[in-house]
């Protein structure tokens, strides 16, 4: 008798777990497109162009995932989210994944019940000040007014940094990067702090960029990456390994230009496994064998995405820095495809 109850409970628990977890990939396949949460606009990372098409570095990740699933990088719909609505949009199931330069932190991962699927940009918080202020280190900013975006990790980092160094500051809260840009130029704050990538791209739009300096201190670690809801590991794996495929492709020299050629078979077994000519990695993910080929063709490998949207030849002009491959002294390190 007791045994029956136990088995019954087990079955019920199993069913419940099955319903809670196995859904997303099947749901996405059934509806025929990926619903991806992005920012309402961040230069280089996600913004619609003059024709209304979303482009950018984060958008590239969404398109790669869509291409891996459907073979079609346009099978994706974008939900713009703000810093305040992004997590509810993901938790309530409005979006399937979030690629919205979101910092991977302990509490977001554990407490908010999300699963980060890797890092597509290693960032860190910095300070920008007008040159004529004559400050050379962030530690000299005692008593300064600082423009800071609310609802972000930068706000907390700033408080930590000033407390640690026992100096005071006055925050000027702002809502978006554009607003911060404007407040800073209008002199409403002495310093503007946000992720260093944001500072560089903001400074690039100034009329006289040489009048402003970015201080050398980087006061935080900001690993930005795509995330999904907790509890659906199959779906999380699809996103994680699509991102890894883009990173590995750069390391292995697979680009959008030569991927068709290489997909016919090469002497490098890892390339063959990645591109599906050897083994059945795609099948294990529940995708087709050429999933990685499609993902790479969508916007190119990681390096190509970087160069197109935020690299040194764009107005944003970011150097690879920490975001170089591990073989070049950066932090990008994809686990092996085996």
């Amino acid at each position: 008798m007791k045994k029956t109850v136990f088995f019954g409970a087990l079955t019920a628990a199993g069913l419940a777990a099955g319903m809670a977890s196995a859904a997303t990939l099947d749901d996405v396949k059934a509806k025929g497109f990926l619903q991806c949460g992005v920012t309402t606009g961040l230069v280089g990372f996600a913004a619609p162009d003059a024709n209304g098409e979303w482009t950018g570095f984060d958008v590239g990740v969404c398109r790669a995932v869509a291409a891996a699933i459907f073979g079609d990088p346009t099978a994706v719909k974008f939900t713009p989210t703000t810093g305040k609505t992004r997590f509810t949009a993901l938790a309530s199931g409005e979006v399937d994944m979030l690629a919205r330069n979101t910092t991977w932190t302990f509490s977001r991962d554990v407490d908010l019940k999300f699963e980060f699927n890797g890092v597509n940009y290693y960032d860190g918080q910095g300070f920008m000040i007008p040159k004529n202020l004559g400050v050379t280190s962030a530690k000299e900013l005692d008593g300064a007014t600082v423009c800071i975006q609310t609802g972000t990790t930068t706000e907390l980092n700033l408080a930590d940094f000033f407390r640690k160094n026992n100096i005071s500051y006055e925050p000027v809260p702002i809502e978006t990067n554009a607003e911060g840009n404007q407040q800073y130029l209008a002199g409403a704050c002495d310093a503007y702090t946000t992720d260093a990538s944001g500072l560089a791209s903001t400074r690039a739009t100034f009329e006289n960029p040489q009048d402003h300096v970015i201080l050398p201190e980087i006061i935080s670690k900001e690993p930005l990456g795509p995330l999904v809801r907790h509890g659906d590991h199959e779906w999380g794996d699809v996103v994680r390994w699509t991102l890894n495929a883009l990173i590995a492709a750069e390391e292995l020299g697979v680009t959008s230009a030569n991927v068709d050629e290489l997909a016919k078979g090469t002497n490098n077994p890892e390339v063959n496994r990645l591109l599906g000519t050897e083994g059945n990695l795609g099948e294990m993910l529940g995708l087709s064998g050429d999933w990685a080929v499609n993902a790479i063709k969508a916007g190119g490998n990681y390096g190509e995405l970087f160069e197109t949207h935020i690299g040194e030849n764009t107005p944003i002009g970011l150097a690879r820095g920490l975001n170089a491959q591990w073989t070049d002294g950066g932090l990008l390190y994809s686990p092996p495809f085996r």
Binding site: T40, V43, P48, E179
Partner: peptide
């Protein structure tokens, strides 16, 4: 515009100011 609908102000603050071409026009 705060709940990420792109009305006139939402369009200005979001997509247009975030495009690489027009970032910085206020």
């Amino acid at each position: 515009s705060v709940i990420s609908m792109f009305d006139l102000v939402g369009m200005v603050r979001g997509p247009i100011l975030a495009s690489t071409a027009w970032n910085g026009v206020y």
